[in-house]
Design a protein around this nucleic acid. Structure first.
Lengths: 203, 203
DNA sequence: ACTTTACTGGACAGACCTGTCTGGCCCCGG
DNA sequence: CCGGGGCCAGACAGGTCTGTCCAGTAAAGT
């Protein structure tokens, strides 16, 4: 009980919290490379030494930012009310349309971050990969529970669809995307399966 | 006959050509902000003054890069052999799978560029928009020719699918994406339509 | 032979970047 | 009361960025 207060002090992490919040806002709105440390610490009202005390380098801040966004999304879906698999799937996709309506919407945190880190082995890219694997697993689980005969494949397609919808809501028209989400998901879920073709998977 | 040689000199545009080629390679491989002018002119073997003679600012080079890539893709599809609309559609999507197999593949030129330019009104973003409108029109035209009852809607979905597939081929597994393209497109094309529901569009 | 034009090589300015360091304040636990 | 750690303020170093400028070369057209 003597070590805990050190980690849980009243103001402990307050500066760190402000840095991370500011970085999250600026990184998402303007891009990661486009936002410098000086700008972050100025808007967060934090000394430079304090920043480098909490984050050894800028990339550590970026990685933390991406990881936290992933955690927030996972928490959000974990707190989603229980529903039938298919309904849950539609809810997941409906959220894309809602997010696109936000005036601050600027696409997917993870896709945007990945676009700025060409090196696939970079910690930031790994964090993105982790998030994508989680999301694929979430969809595959719902599909399996819903009795989809090839949940992994359908999940692959739905992940692609989700990425494309988010991109479209950002670069094209959010309202049009919102209007077509249900149609698109239904086509993927209920569209014809290749296994139905005679002479299919098994030779 | 007197003005033409000035524009078509033997070496005229040679330096410009080298700059644009080098920039194309580096921008795509490493990102736009990540590549500086000094690096481009060094690898292109061009003097700095020459660079700024052809491109008033870096953003002009970037815009030219994006526009040229758009033109190249349009030319490619224009030279595509005539085929039935549906077959042509499948060919368009099959190319995504092929591109993903290239070891230098690093996603979509236009999505990557857009991710680095948050301002939607920026000339680079406009060039990206132009390209996306063209691509949507290409798909919509093929769908209409193929007798799709709601070509614009289906084109919207296919554009989203295309974006997601390209993203997946870059961030996830190119081989898996390649294997599911046909399935995905078929589901979207032949999946159930909302208009088929009783009490549909017309109240 | 003269002019025009693209091009070279490199110095230079001014801004911005990340990251380090010093010095001191303030609050909380012991 | 006092020690330590979180925090602040800002100078500083070393590098990179974009963009300007100058002086000179080489080749094309007239």
């Amino acid at each position: 009980m003597t070590a805990a207060p050190q980690l849980e002090r009243r103001r402990a992490g307050s500066a760190r919290r402000r840095v991370l919040d500011t970085a999250t806002r600026l990184f998402y709105a303007e891009g990661i490379r486009a936002v410098g440390i000086d700008r972050i610490i100025a808007e967060a009202g934090v000394a430079k030494a304090t920043f480098y005390h909490h984050f050894p380098a800028k990339d550590d801040l970026v990685r933390t930012y991406v990881e936290e966004q992933s955690r927030l999304q996972r928490d959000h879906f974990a707190r989603m009310p229980r529903a039938e698999p298919r309904e849950a799937l539609l809810t997941v996709f409906a959220r894309i349309g809602e997010a696109g309506g936000d005036p601050h919407f600027r696409g997917c945190v993870f896709l945007n971050a990945a676009a700025e880190y060409p090196d696939a082995g970079h910690p930031v890219r790994r964090a993105v990969d982790d998030h994508r694997r989680w999301f694929h697993g979430l969809l595959a689980g719902l599909l399996e529970a819903g009795g989809d005969p090839d949940a992994a494949r359908t999940a692959d397609i739905l992940v692609a669809l989700r990425d494309g919808l988010v991109v479209g809501a950002h670069l094209d028209d959010p309202h049009r995307v919102r209007a077509l989400i249900g149609d698109a998901v239904t086509r993927v879920l209920d569209g014809p399966r290749p296994t139905g073709r005679p002479g299919g998977a098994i030779p």
